[in-house]
Amino acid sequence: MSMLKAILPSLAFLRSRWLGCPLALMLTSTWALAQDKRWGPGEAASDYGYRFHDLFWLITILVSVAFALVVLLLAIPVLRDRERPGHRASFDHGKSLHDKRLTAVISIVTFIILDAWVLVIAMQDLREAYWAIPDAEDPQTYRVEVLAQQWAWNFRAPGVDGEFGTADDIITINELVVPKDRPVSFNMTSKDVIHALFLPEMRMKRDVNPGSINKTWFRPITAGDFTILCAELCGFAHYQMSGKLRVLEQGLFNEWEAEASKLASTAFDADDTEAQWAWDWEE
């Protein structure tokens, strides 16, 4: 007991605000957070997302094997070839033809397994998915115009008439509603600085640049509420530039679209030029 009394005063610094509080906070927050945690990005909600995961795990396996080999080849000499009396290093400049061949073969084989393999699959994915921006004329394609600004996402959908720049355009801020299973195609630009539209559950990301229109697309395959984030530093509220992506079943979506379009037409104000930012889609 007396010893405890002797130690306690020396722990008084924990009570001072500058150290004690944060320290305690950190420990408790670690504990609290351990309750609700995540180690990965969650289930993918777009077909492209599955391609991402296939590729990601392929690379992970290849890379892990390669790294394990490096560590092994590092560990063996450390354990086996340490300096000790009477021990001498083998003398080898690696100049022989055999060594040169070995170097070349190993490098090329590693390249083929580690890089070329991934490259081929990636190319295939890109051509079939990422670059394959759907035809804007196709009625299946759901088109969205994105106007980013510090610090909000403005979305414009053509409404039931299927035309941008008309009274029934559905304009939403920080919330985007799209139909499930249909390709959603974006035309995006920014009012001020560069932003990036990041839909983590869709594994989709594309910069939104001022002065030009950037395009991308994805196909949601799960209905539900998802996340919209900004992934390009855009000022001090960058971290708060988030929004909600709602994916609705086709039937529900049609109801929502009709309703929202009607509402937009009644609320339309032709004099409000600020709100007339739509543009034409070109291929």
Binding site: L73, D81, R82, E83, H87, R88, A89, S107, I108, F111
Partner: peptide, 30 residues
């Protein structure tokens, strides 16, 4: 750019190979 970037890993592999080979059967002073 994807292809060119991956090609850069070839010389990097040569370096790794040479480093690991330098250690192999050495007389290591840690």
């Amino acid at each position: 750019f994807m292809l060119l970037t991956m090609i850069i890993s070839v010389p990097a592999e040569v370096l790794f190979f040479n480093w690991l080979h330098t250690l192999w059967k050495g007389n290591l002073r840690l």
